[in-house]
């Protein structure tokens, strides 16, 4: 009994780590929850040159090409469906109308170089919403047949 007397005292030399653990737990939970969002995107096709001996496409005039015309910096680009002017608001309805009676829902998008990519993405999005299954991108090189 008497040997244990000296070691009494209520002092505790341990650090209080409880708040530290609280903070760490919350941080861990935060990092676990913010897993990066699933990537999303728009499907687009690039027409490949046909094989040299392929039969000629005999329905060329049914192709729908949506064109984005650059109207200068800061201006909303103009939209054209087969050289026919439309508005951004009317584009979806117009496309739905065109593709309502068609079996192959294929469309092409062409844009001026200075058009922001966001507008092109918007057109493709509107096209997908109007029921177009396949959206092809036309570049100057593809148009030239290269």
């Amino acid at each position: 009994m008497s040997m244990a007397v000296g070691s009494g005292g209520g002092q505790n030399a341990d650090m209080n780590v409880t708040p530290l653990i609280d903070v760490l737990l919350v941080l861990i939970i935060i990092f676990m929850v913010i897993n990066p969002p699933q990537p999303k995107g728009l499907d687009a096709l690039v027409p490949q040159p046909p094989p040299p001996n392929a039969p000629k496409n005999n329905t060329p005039d049914r192709t729908i090409v949506v064109q984005l015309i650059d109207r200068g910096a800061g201006q909303e680009p103009g939209v054209k469906i087969n050289n026919e002017d439309t508005t951004w608001d009317g584009l979806g309805a117009r496309l739905t109308d065109i593709f309502k009676t068609r079996a192959e829902k294929v469309m092409f998008v062409k844009g001026d170089d200075n058009v922001p990519f966001a507008d092109v993405a918007n057109v493709i999005d509107i096209a997908h919403a109007s029921g177009v299954d396949k959206v092809g991108l036309i570049t100057a090189k593809i148009e030239a047949g290269g």
């Binding site: 990537p39 999303k40 728009l42 844009g111 001026d112 170089d113 507008d119 991108l137 570049t139």
Partner: peptide, 26 residues
């Protein structure tokens, strides 16, 4: 806000490699 011209250049080059399916991430 990239110019579409820059994207077109990428599309052209990717197409030359024989790819015909693109995913435009948005």
């Amino acid at each position: 806000r990239a110019r579409f011209g820059a994207v077109v250049a990428v599309v052209d080059n990717v197409r030359s490699a024989g790819v015909d399916d693109l995913g435009l991430l948005t």
